[in-house]
Design a protein around this nucleic acid. Structure first.
Length: 273
DNA sequence: CACCACTCCTGCCCGC
DNA sequence: TGCGGGCAGGAGTGGT
């Protein structure tokens, strides 16, 4: 995986673009390809022109540019990236959207076009995409107690349940596998069979894995301007993800790959019970 | 509800 | 060297 934006990547992107956007006035916008996950709203350039970006926020994997009268909502899907560039820089094939701030340009690149650019004029937390989201994994609303409560009555395996955004946001396929490895929990375990102890361990593992990835991404991100906007795996090395057949870093046994809900899961059958 | 399959799309890797 | 096929994957949507 080379540029799969999970929560850490989105948060590092937020921190990277914030200094270039906050307090700046939008002078224009260019939609080269409106065919993202949902159509980019018509007349968006006209809506945005002249607005001042008050803050650059994040909710789950959505980036929110607070423009006072409304929010520009950006999602990177699974191949999207943002970069700060200059007005004279030639856009390339998959550069679908530009936000112009004088000579500075925020440019969205997204080859697979699973991303989104939307405008919400009302309170952004009530937008239908944000309304029903669970707690942020790095805020104190998320934890063992909440995870325990939320998994009662869930017969499905913990791995897909952990990726359910009603339960907790921002845990994608990579970090779900990584968190379960750190917590030493078998991904096939029925969610409702996890007791308080294992829920505590899992919540702590999620927090730890995400924080570590944010730190790794943040430290490798020296200068957001001119960066190619792409990320590698934020962890120096994943412990299990993408390592089918390779030795577990803890016990040396082979990492196993299985499918859960049309998605790959990686785990160590010896260490994760 | 909970759960599952389906869907969007293109880069990449494999085998021939 | 080129090409067809298969795969991956965030997450909303719709069916059971």
């Amino acid at each position: 995986m080379h540029a799969m934006p999970e929560l850490p990547e989105v948060e590092v992107t937020r921190r990277g673009i914030e200094p270039h956007l906050a307090g700046r006035v939008i002078t224009g916008a260019v939609v080269r390809n409106a065919g993202l996950r949902w159509p980019v709203p018509r007349g968006l350039a006209k809506t945005l022109r002249g607005l001042r970006i008050e803050a650059v926020k994040r909710r789950a994997k959505y980036l929110l540019l607070d423009c006072g009268t409304g929010h520009l909502i950006l999602h990177l899907g699974m191949s999207g990236s943002l970069r700060i560039t200059g007005a004279k820089e030639q856009p390339s094939r998959h550069d679908h959207f530009d936000l112009e701030l004088g000579d500075t340009v925020l440019r969205l690149r997204d080859p697979r076009r699973f991303g989104a650019v939307l405008w919400e004029r009302g309170p952004v937390e009530r937008h239908r995409l944000l309304r029903d989201l669970g707690p942020e994994p790095l805020e104190k609303q998320f934890g063992g107690a909440q995870l325990f409560a939320a998994t009662r009555g869930r017969a499905a395996a913990i791995k897909p349940v952990l990726m359910d955004s009603h339960l907790v946001v921002g845990v994608g396929n990579i970090y779900a596998s990584e968190s379960l490895f750190l917590a030493r929990i078998n991904p096939k375990t029925a969610a409702r069979r996890l007791g308080r102890g294992r829920c505590d361990r899992l919540a702590e593992a999620v927090r730890s894995v995400l924080n570590q990835a944010i730190r790794a991404g943040g430290s490798s991100l020296r200068d957001y301007v001119q960066s190619d906007g792409s990320f590698g795996c934020f962890q120096v090395e994943c412990a299990v993800y993408g390592r089918a057949g390779e030795p577990c870093r803890s016990c040396g046994g082979p990492i196993r790959q299985i499918a859960q809900g049309q998605r790959s899961t990686y785990y160590c059958p010896h260490c994760q019970r």
